[in-house]
Structure formats: structure tokens, C-alpha cells
Nucleic acid binder design. Structure first.
Lengths: 258, 258
DNA sequence: CGGCAAATTGAAGTATTTCAACGTCGGTGG
DNA sequence: CCACCGACGTTGAAATACTTCAATTTGCCG
């Protein structure tokens, strides 16, 4: 980790809490410290008490459970605007690592909790942030309970679109489809989707053979047929696809998504 | 549904919030209404705005996503002490149904939120309740990302032990193993674990053939070999099994669990 | 250029799905 | 009271999908 030597605050570190009052934001920012991590570095160890909570400024973090025998299991990704660390409640059950180079805002636990008690607006923002994360965990459950790997992969790709749409250079609607940068390795993706890297690779190429995606590089694909992917993922096509298009059009209103 | 005709409050309806102040508890109880549901009845419709939040008093509720074509997908179970409904934030994305006969406490949204703002202790209790649910959703993710069905089933059975240990007649340590009542049908369990009823059935019998469980009735099994089940589930045996034994001994200190 | 990690491919073995059929239980109506 | 029905669980057998292990390719870095 690379604690900022000047002890400088995050500029706009509270982007994870969009609807708080300006004065709360100022106080929050004055608590914050910026830290930079390089891909692969550990941010929080599993079951170790941490004296801070944090929000992601840029980059991707990986949440994972590490077993005694060394196996690791990815249980989620954190992006720009996500909060992590347990308020009021000691250790978290997962370790957190940088999946890409990343910048995070650190808030020391005690002052953060004090501010939380004084500022109902922040309190509510934290609560909404967590509720949001709960919904996302349930989205994962639905993806994971697909029995075919191509379906889980399709679900993952669609989730990427809706979830990472706001993250720089991650999702870009273009005329020939939606370009996506995949932030984790095949091995991690395999863990996340409950399978092996070989099967992930085969699933990618199966989707390509069906014409639903195009693999530009291993970590860079074009989604060519969103409705087909949504149908494969077992999503409610009639519901998911229009919402996705809205989301994507919001990034680049000038371009057609389909 | 069976709204109490007398409009009577839940006695001790705030058991979902164990650590709140007595005066907050009193106020909370005075807001509450008890409702009874019979197995199969709907509590909350998907994507419909509800004007209340609730906690489970007794019985089991099923959270599920219903698709346009009628398929249903169980994404979680709610038991005694669990809270549901979104504070501050309109519709929830899942419908809720009674999986067994159940009693729930209803709190009208607006007064509940008002009380929440006035009572930091309740606010914190709600937050902890949600954080807890988030952890549980991640436990599900880990279970679901097991690639063998017997492993997922073993994970489910172990989760039942730790999670439903406090619920009446659900989990009972006996001299020949831990007796468990399974609150949902094979079909629902199949949805929950991402497979088909036939495979669930085969998995149960495979575990029985290995001597790890005994099927007394389809919905009533004895766990005979907790360490083997934990190992199969890919749990950290060294960590999970002792914790489970503590939990189980806490129910009936007079009996040996293993 | 060599070395390494990640991704891919092939082929054999294993597990799951699928479709069909059967058994059991509880309720309904004759 | 008993026959019938439907829901649920179970079982069998063939088709399909996934895992495993081994080998190969690709891209990157020194």
C-alpha cells in the first residue's frame, strides 16, 4: 500500500454517498486519507480487525474468502463508489485485494462513526449503500444458480453492463455492440462463477460461436446480442434489456446501443 | 393474510433488534401489528410498493423472484428475528411468501422511519440486521459456487444448523446426530441450490449412502457426520465444525452433539 | 531469445440434466 | 369406505455438460 506521504485528503472522496449535505461532505472529506494500491496488493486481511472503513475512488477491488488450505474464493467485486468495512462491528469475514491498480479513501472508524451519529443524512446514505450491496449479492445468487456455465457467464456480462456502466473505460456502447473490459483473470472469474478456468474459456468461445459476443482479447469482449445473452442468462428479457439500454444510452446518448 | 382483528400489538415484536433501549422497544411495540399467514400465502408482491416493514416472529418466509414466464426462483429464507422490507426506499425486488405458517410483525413505514431518525439505537440495530443479511447472502454465494450438488446440499444443511438453530423444532441435537426439519420442498430447494429436484433427491440419497446423513422422511433428516459434511461443503472444517458445536450445545447443553 | 504466467485446446472420465415412469401420501367425491 | 386424482418424491437410462489432466499456444517481461 502507498499511504499518501502528505497525509492529503481525498478530493471528493465521498462520491460513494451522493446525497449528503455539503457540510457533511466537507467533514467527511476532512477525515479521509487517500491510499493507492497496485494490482494484487492486499487491502484488508480476513477476520482481522480494521480501524477504518473505506470507499473505492478508482479501480477494482476483489472480495474473497481464503480457506485454511489456501484455496481462495472470490465473492464479489468493488468498484468506484462502493463502500467496504463494517461500521460498528469489527472484523469483516472476507479479505479485500486490489484487482487492478486502485485508489481508495480511508476513514478512521471512530471519527466516522461519530460523524455518522451526528449526521442523519450520512447515516441514511450508508444504509442505502449497504442495501444496494445486498441487492447486488442477491443478483449474484441468481446468476450462480444457473446450471449452465454459458448462462452464468452471460449473466456476469450483463451484470457488468448495468453495474460497471459508470466506471471509466469499462463499458462502452459502440455501433457494433457493447465493448467490455473484464477486470479479472479467467481463474478469478472461474472462482466467482463456481467453475474452472478451462470451462470459462470454453464458455467464452461457445458464446462467440453463437455470435452473441466477440472476443477481441481475453479481457476485452464485444457484446453483440444483448437480448440473446439476457435470454440465456434466464433474465426477464422483456424487463432487463430495456433497462440496460437506458443505462447504456445514458453513457453515450449519441450512439445507438443495439 | 390474517390481520389481527383487535389491532393488537406484537408482544415483544422487536426481537429482531436485540440491543435497543427499553423505551425504544416500547415505542416500537406500540407501532406494531401482528399478522398471521398460512403456508403458501403471499406477504409481499414483487416490485409493489409496500407501506410497511416487518420482522418475522415465527415460521419461515421464502424470498423469491418471479419471472414473466412464471418461473420462480427462491433467493433466500427468512426466519424468526429477520427483518424485511426496505427502509427509506420503496419497492423490494423480490416477493415474499410464507413457507410455513408464520407470524410477522408489521411496522407502518412512515412512523417506523420517524422513530428511526429519533432513535440512534434502533437505527444501529437496523443497520446491523442488514449487514448480517449481507453476510448471509455471501454465505449463499459460497455454497452456490460449489460445483458438485452433494457439496451444495451439504453446505445448505450446515447453514441450516448454524442459522436456524434458534428456531423451534427446526434443529435438534440428539445422541445419534443432529435432527433437522427441512422447511421447503425439493423443488424449491432445487431452485435455491441451482439444480433440479431429481438431482436434489439423488444428492440426498448419495449423502445417505455415504453415512453422512439419514433420511427419516423427505423433509426430516439426521446429520450423522458433521465434519464429513463440512469437508464436503468445502468449508474450513477446522473453523466451522467447532463453531457449529458451540451453537448446537447452546440449544441443549445437556446433550452431546457429536 | 528464454522464461513465465495466463489462456486455450484435446480427450477421457465423471456428474448432471432430461424425459419418462413409478410409488406414496392426502384429499375429494362417489 | 374406497377409488381416484394430483402433488411430490424417487428411480432409471440416455443425452449432455462439466471436470480433469496433459499438452500447446499466446503474450509479456527481463
Amino acid at each position: 500500500m502507498d499511504d499518501d506521504p502528505t497525509g492529503k485528503n481525498c478530493s471528493n472522496g465521498s462520491s460513494a454517498f451522493p446525497d449528503i449535505l455539503p457540510e457533511t461532505r466537507d467533514e467527511l472529506d476532512s477525515l479521509s486519507r487517500l491510499r493507492r494500491y497496485r494490482s494484487g496488493q492486499s487491502v484488508i486481511e480476513e477476520n482481522v480487525h480494521t480501524d477504518f472503513v473505506g470507499t473505492v475512488q478508482s479501480g477494482i477491488l476483489r472480495m474473497q474468502k481464503t480457506f485454511a488450505d489456501g484455496r481462495q474464493h472470490v465473492v464479489g467485486l468493488l468498484v468506484e463508489g462502493d463502500m467496504f468495512g463494517r461500521v460498528f462491528d469489527g472484523a469483516i469475514e472476507f479479505s479485500i485485494e486490489a484487482a487492478t491498480d486502485a485508489e481508495i479513501c480511508i476513514y478512521p472508524r471512530t471519527p466516522f462513526e461519530t460523524l455518522l451519529v451526528r449526521s442523519p443524512d450520512l447515516d441514511r446514505a450508508v444504509l442505502l449503500n449497504i442495501l444496494n450491496e445486498l441487492d447486488r449479492a442477491r443478483d449474484w445468487m441468481i446468476i450462480l444458480s444457473n446450471n449452465k456455465i454459458t448462462s452464468r457467464l452471460a449473466g456476469f456480462l450483463i451484470l457488468m453492463c448495468s453495474r460497471f456502466a459508470t466506471v471509466d473505460h469499462m463499458v462502452e456502447p459502440k455501433s457494433d455492440g457493447v465493448h467490455i473490459k473484464i477486470p479479472i483473470s479467467r481463474t478469478d472469474l472461474a472462482h466467482l462463477l463456481g467453475t474452472r478456468p478451462e470451462s470459462i474459456s470454453r464458455a467464452f468461445h461457445a458464446l462467440e460461436d453463437e455470435g452473441e459476443i466477440e472476443i477481441l482479447e481475453p479481457d476485452h469482449v464485444t457484446l453483440r446480442d444483448l437480448p440473446a445473452l439476457a435470454a440465456r442468462a434466464g433474465e426477464d428479457e422483456a424487463e432487463t434489456v430495456p433497462r440496460l439500454k437506458d443505462t447504456l444510452n445514458a453513457i453515450r446518448p449519441s450512439r445507438s446501443v443495439s
